[in-house]
Design a binder for these strands. Structure first.
Lengths: 217, 217
DNA sequence: CCTACCGATCGGTAGG
DNA sequence: CCTACCGATCGGTAGG
């Protein structure tokens, strides 16, 4: 792979981080973190196993003592990313009683969605932009989690419409637009811009409520 | 480059198309279109010059009779994509007199933004997702056009706020969210889904007005 | 527009 | 965890 000598910047310069408790111990974990940084920056095809190994400080052949293939390293990252997103969305919407209304649930959902993308921007970029490099078998579990995330958002929107809290021109397009807003944050969030994660989450929750046509502002 | 035998789907199966009048004549144009399809589907690093040449029906060495490098083919696509976006946004906002108000201008801007992404989804994906593979010199002209597009949106939003037509929690975040919505359309728009381009454009214009806090719905 | 070819690098394996 | 190596493929060039 020809690696350019100028540094392409596909993501902001943020710390390499994985969610608590999911980084494997020892070298396997360090390989995963090195791959995370490189896949995010250069893409799966733009990253060689030798470059990953260099970053860890091991020989490239040693990588195969920990992972079956370059693709399996990506598969683990994509799975971790989707799992984290799913669990945090589920926890967010589950923490708001139905009695509080769809607006409160939508706000919680969007705050959590943005939260994942500002807490783990590298992971989010890899999860969203490199999933296509996985074989269908490797991609399938992540696609299921993604569908579940989508359903949570659609369900809250549909409930709000049914209850008269929301009014949207189209349910699916509104959900798609809200999802797009949040995913995009991972591409520019970083220490080189003036917004904090909380502020973005709060603002985007407000914008999502507007998209939903919620009466309250 | 190891090309997978399962077909990764990074974009919907849409026709390969470039804006009117920008496709070079003859083989040079066919190379550009072949590269467009492959860069969109597999990414710049995932695409070999041999695969581009195969699609055109020429020997890979012949590619260099028409372009200086693989990167220069990408540079031309990225430039065309940004140029088309910029010109259509400028035409859209220019066609609405100031007297009609910021809401009318914002709606026109978003309709045009979505329009480009549904008319040329492959070009939009390459333009947005592969720009990082260009050297700074090759990327610079496109980045200028991108900044100009952003300014158009920010200006319309700012004017609406000043005139009391709009009310946003944060100008930059509102513009970023509106931009993200539109860009994302290129990733799923295609013949395999039920929405037409006009319908998406109209709906997204409505959602953008809501984000802007426009009084009218 | 092609044949023939360059050195470099690719993902991955054998064997220890 | 490393040395040594595999065949394949990479972007690009020489020469016609």
């Amino acid at each position: 792979m020809d690696v350019p000598d100028w540094e392409p910047r596909r993501v902001a310069a943020v710390a390499v981080a994985l969610p608590d408790g999911v980084t494997p111990a020892g070298t396997r974990g360090r390989i995963l973190e090195a791959a995370l940084a490189l896949y995010a920056e250069l893409g799966f095809y733009g990253t060689s196993i030798r470059r990953i190994a260099d970053r860890v400080g091991i020989n490239s052949a040693t990588l195969y003592a920990h992972y079956q293939s370059k693709e399996q390293v990506l598969a683990e990252l994509v799975q971790v990313g989707h799992r984290e997103l799913h669990d945090r969305l589920a926890a967010a919407v589950g923490a708001v009683p139905d009695a509080d209304g769809a607006a409160a649930q939508l706000a919680a959902l969007v705050r959590a969605h943005v939260g994942v993308h500002v807490d783990y921007p590298l992971l989010a970029v890899v999860t969203n932009s490199e999933l296509h490099a996985l074989s269908p078998e490797h991609a399938a579990p992540a696609l299921e989690l993604r569908a579940a995330c989508r359903r949570m958002l659609l369900d809250v929107l549909a409930r709000g419409v049914k209850d008269g809290e929301f009014a949207v021109p189209d349910l699916v397009l509104a959900a798609t637009a809200i999802g797009a807003m949040g995913m995009h944050v991972a591409q520019w969030f970083g220490p080189d811009q003036p917004y904090g994660g909380e502020q973005i989450a709060e603002t985007y929750a407000c914008l999502a409520l507007r998209i939903a046509g919620a009466a309250a502002r």
